[in-house]
Simulated assay, not measured.
Amino acid sequence: MNTQQTHLIAESVPTVSRREGIATRAQFQTNDDKDMLRAARDLTKDLGEAKPAIYWTDMLVSAGIGYLGMAMAIMSANWALSIVAAVIASLALYRAVMFIHELTHIRKEALPGFRLGWNLLVGIPLLTPSFMYEGVHVIHHKRTQYGTVEDPEYLPLALMKPWSLPVFVLVALLAPIALIIRFAVLVPLGFFVPAVRNFVWQRFSALSINPEFRRKPPTGDFRKRVLWQEMAASLWAIAILLSPLVLDWRPVLIAFAIFSLTAVLNQLRTLVAHLWENEGDPMTVTAQFLDSVNVPPPGRIAELWAPVGLRYHALHHLMPSMPYHDLPEAHRRLNIELGTGSTYEGANHAGMLPLVGRIARSTMIRR
C-alpha cells in the first residue's frame, strides 16, 4: 500500500477499545479506534497494486454491453425486448460510469492510458467527463472537511425533512436534460460571456450534492484536461441535440431514459453510501468510517447497485487508494481479524432497503 492509502490510518490518536454490540459514529466523534486503524494498515500491506488487465477488461466489457443493450433497445420493434435491453444497458453503463470514482484515487502511472480511454469511451459519450469528479471527490476524503459544509458530497439527509429523500432521488431523472443544457448551451455561451463560464464552472462543473459548494478555477495540467474534455463533450451534446433533425426522436428519448435510470441508480446508491447523521462538525477517521456504509456478501444484489467496489464504501474511507478489486479481500481479512462486536462490524449493513428505512425513520423521528 502506498502512503496515500495509509495517511488516514497512521495518525497517532488515542485508542478506544472494542465494546460489546455495534459501534456508532457518536462514540468516536473525538477519539479513534486505533486498533482498527492499525489492523487496516497491517493486514493489507500486500494489497493495493492496481491491475491494468482487470480495469481495462471490466470497463470495456461493461461499456460494450451497455452500448449493445442501448442499440437493441432503440432498434427493437418489440417493446418488451426493448425494455429488457434498456434495463441491461442502464446497469452495464452504470458500472462503466462508476470507474470515474477509481480515476480520482488511482495514480495515473498505475494505469497508463486508462483515464483517456475511459473519457473517450464512457465519460464524454455519457456527458460525465472525468474533470467533473477529479479534484472534487478528494475533498470528501479530507480529514477536516468530511461531513462539513465544505464537503461537496455530504448532506445531513438523516436530519432533514422526510420529503427531502424522494426529492433527492427523483431529481436525478433530470440529469440527461441538465447535462445537455450545460454542455450544448451554457459551455458555448460561456465562450463568449466570461460571467456565464465562471458561473457554470463554480456551480455546475462537479458531481456534488451540496448546493453550497463552489468550485475553484482549474489550474496547471488539470486546466488543459478540462479544456479538451469540455470541448469534446460540448460538441457531442450539440450533436445529440441536433440528431432528431437527421434521425427521429426515438433514439434520443430511449437513450435519455436509459441514462435517467442510470442516474437514479447512482442517486439511490448515494442515498445509502452514508448514514448522513453528522451536523457539520469535523469527525475522526473512525467516525467517518461508521458514518459510511459497507454492504458485504453474502448478499449479491449490492454488486448491481454499488458496483466497482462501492459496496465497501466504508472500507474505502479507511483506504481511499485501495483498488476496487482488492477491497473484497481487505474486507475479508479485517472481518476475520476484528470479529463480531468490533468497531469494524459497525459499518456493515444488510442492504439498500434497511438503510433507506433507517434514514427515513431518522427524518421522521426528528420532526
Rank of each mutant, 00 (worst) to 15 (best):
D221F: 12
N266C: 06
M283A: 07
R300E: 07
M72R: 15
P188A: 05
F259R: 01
S321W: 00
A63D: 09
G351E: 00
D326N: 07
W79C: 03
V61Y: 02
W79H: 10
F204Y: 11
I22R: 11
R250W: 15
F222T: 06
V61I: 10
I139E: 03
L355Q: 02
D35P: 00
R95V: 12
H137G: 01
L334I: 05
E212A: 02
G309L: 08
Q267M: 07
W249V: 15
A40P: 05
M322S: 01
S234C: 11
T284H: 08
G117Y: 05
I301C: 07
S90T: 03
L245W: 13
Q4W: 06
R143C: 01
P162T: 08
F168I: 04
A350Y: 00
P244M: 12
T340D: 12
W201E: 01
V356T: 01
L245E: 09
T15G: 12
A330H: 08
F259A: 03
K142H: 13
G190E: 10
A255T: 14
P217G: 09
M352W: 01
Q27M: 14
F28E: 05
A184P: 02
N348M: 12
H141T: 04
L338H: 07
L116W: 15
L43Y: 08
R38H: 14
W305F: 01
L179V: 04
S164K: 02
D248Y: 09
R300I: 11
T30R: 11
G21D: 09
L227C: 12
I209D: 03
L116T: 14
A233G: 04
D33R: 02
Q27Y: 11
L126A: 08
M1G: 04
L43K: 12
I336L: 10
G64N: 03
D32I: 10
L116N: 14
I258R: 08
T343A: 12
R367I: 14
L235W: 15
L227W: 14
L8Y: 10
W236C: 13
V149Y: 02
I54L: 14
G220Q: 06
F259Q: 03
A85W: 09
G346C: 09
V252T: 14
A195C: 05
R25T: 11
L165S: 02
T343W: 08
D248G: 12
A302R: 10
L173M: 09
D35H: 06
V308S: 12
A287D: 09
A360E: 03
M72T: 15
L37V: 02
M70W: 10
M59C: 13
H313N: 03
S292T: 13
W276I: 02
A80K: 04
L120G: 11
R250H: 15
L127S: 01
A71T: 15
V122A: 08
